[in-house]
């Protein structure tokens, strides 16, 4: 996996249909795109741009936000140019999306393996306040093991580790992408995993 070197802000562009677009700030290969329906807000990381062995976290700039109404590229490493539109946003999507605003995710989404949220909600790293966390960077995880809780409208559900979507049977946690108490959108990465 390449190291993430620096952050670059996505460029805001006005699209013909009145929606707002977020465009690549440079030429390179675009990876870790967020899916259609995810909600973006300023400061969030929304993918990674690879350029000659360097990687840049793509950050949503101030003044941009909303639900993604475009599909991610089919390729894991999509070649893009300076100014290529990476996301089309529906600015109304913030209001329409209700409570599930993924504002707290500040970690980088590199081109590694990720456990993704199955639903939108608030993420809790431990079973109850003050108790030890389910897992942390360096922990080994196996199928069925609890990773975190997701709170949706005062209802808590456990997120178990599943060896699917390319994830190994036994994984090692590289890092949390969403901090304790942070919000997540369905499909967004929760934590990064590498084979144990």
């Amino acid at each position: 996996m390449s190291q993430v070197h620096a952050k670059r802000e996505l460029r805001i562009v006005a699209l013909e249909d009145g929606n707002v677009g977020l465009a690549s700030p440079d030429v390179g290969e675009f990876a870790a795109a967020l899916p259609r329906g995810a909600t973006l807000s300023p400061g969030m990381t929304a993918g990674v741009l690879h350029q000659l062995g360097k990687s840049f976290e793509l950050v949503v700039p101030a003044g941009a936000g909303g639900a993604i109404v475009s599909d991610p590229p089919k390729s894991m490493m999509a070649p893009v140019g300076f100014g290529t539109t990476l996301y089309r946003l529906d600015p109304e999507g913030i209001a329409a999306g209700g409570a599930g605003v993924g504002a707290a995710s500040s970690g980088a989404a590199g081109d590694g393996l990720f456990v993704r949220a199955g639903q939108s909600g608030r993420v809790w790293h431990s079973p109850a306040p003050g108790e030890p966390v389910f897992c942390t960077a360096g922990s080994t995880v196996e199928a069925g093991q609890a990773l975190c809780l997701i709170e949706v409208m005062k209802t808590f559900s456990t997120v178990p580790y599943k060896a699917q979507d390319g994830l190994p049977a036994r994984g090692k946690v590289v890092r949390w992408i969403v901090e304790d108490g942070g919000d997540v959108e369905s499909g967004m990465p929760l934590l990064e995993i590498e084979p144990a």
Binding site: D26, V27, G28, Q51, L52, P79, G81, F82, G83, T84
Partner: peptide
């Protein structure tokens, strides 16, 4: 492939961007 903004220093003079493209 678009590699940067209008000023040559933002585009045509950027060795890294040209090679990446």
């Amino acid at each position: 492939v678009c590699i940067g903004g209008p000023a040559p220093g933002s585009s045509y003079l950027r060795a890294d961007a040209v090679v990446q493209a």
